[in-house]
Design a protein around this nucleic acid. Structure first.
Length: 224
DNA sequence: AAGAGTACCAACCGCCACTTC
DNA sequence: GGAAGTGGCGGTTGGTACTCT
């Protein structure tokens, strides 16, 4: 097999999409779906690479995309999940229906990150600052993948919290770093829904929970 | 009014993980 | 088991809109 480059240099268009291209892509996907992104542009008659088509569809053309400003609630979710997961935008996006990883990433870099930096400078005590404490510690609890992808897990719920019995959920890409990220822990029920709770005492319990879970899995030799 | 600086966001790039052969 | 194909992710860039001087 010869590996073909993602975008053949010849004849493939780059840059902003035109309304005509959008229309072609939408109608093609509505008609045939997107079984194979690399083959799609050819089938649809687009001079774009498959990756570009996929990105355009996922980030802009998908019918369930939610446009407009992020709500306070969404901001809070992003901040807390970022505190736990780090820059795993796609995972965070699964908890924000209608929002794309790209949108969340942009929002983080253009709004939240700056706000966090400002609030840190002002020394104010609010949730943003708390999250900043998590982020600036450079911590990332990768086992939290299990929280976010709980719907895929073979799992059981204890007191509304989740136990994961599927180490396939655990990222191999990023080795686990256990640190202050526990502080911003978000818990989830068995269906993967986030249980929102800003109470410090509960956060403390969650820290303990996640810490114990990490230690248990570590001792059992679960790869994380 | 115009140029400079800044903010925002769509899109690209390179890498990695999973799947298929 | 390993090589190749493919999809997906995160980092980054570049263009445009907006604000300030």
């Amino acid at each position: 097999m010869v590996k073909t480059p993602c975008c053949e240099k010849m004849g493939l268009k780059k840059g902003p999409w035109t309304p005509e291209e959008d229309q072609i892509l939408i109608s093609h996907i509505q008609q045939y779906g997107h079984g194979n992104w690399r083959a799609l542009p050819k089938q649809a008659g687009l001079s774009r690479c498959g990756k570009s088509c996929r990105l355009r569809w996922i980030n802009y053309l998908r019918p369930d995309i939610k446009r407009g400003r992020f709500s306070k609630e969404e901001e809070e979710i992003i901040i807390k999940l970022h505190g736990i997961l780090g820059n795993r935008w796609a995972t965070i996006a699964t908890r924000l229906p209608g929002r794309t990883d790209n949108e969340i990433k942009n929002f983080w870099h253009t709004h939240l990150k700056k706000r966090l930096e400002r609030s840190e400078l002002q020394g104010s005590s609010n949730s943003l600052q708390e999250a900043q404490a998590v982020c600036s510690a450079g911590s990332s609890i990768n086992m939290a993948q299990g929280v976010v992808d709980a719907s895929d897990a073979t799992s059981s719920s204890v007191d509304g919290k989740l136990l994961i019995a599927n180490d396939s959920l655990l990222s191999r890409k990023n080795p686990p770093i256990v640190g202050l990220g526990f502080y911003g822990a978000v818990s989830s029920d068995i269906s993967g829904q986030i249980i929102r709770n800003n109470s410090h005492s509960v956060i403390g319990e969650e820290m303990e929970f996640w810490y114990n879970m990490f230690m248990n899995s570590h001792h059992k030799g679960i790869k994380m």
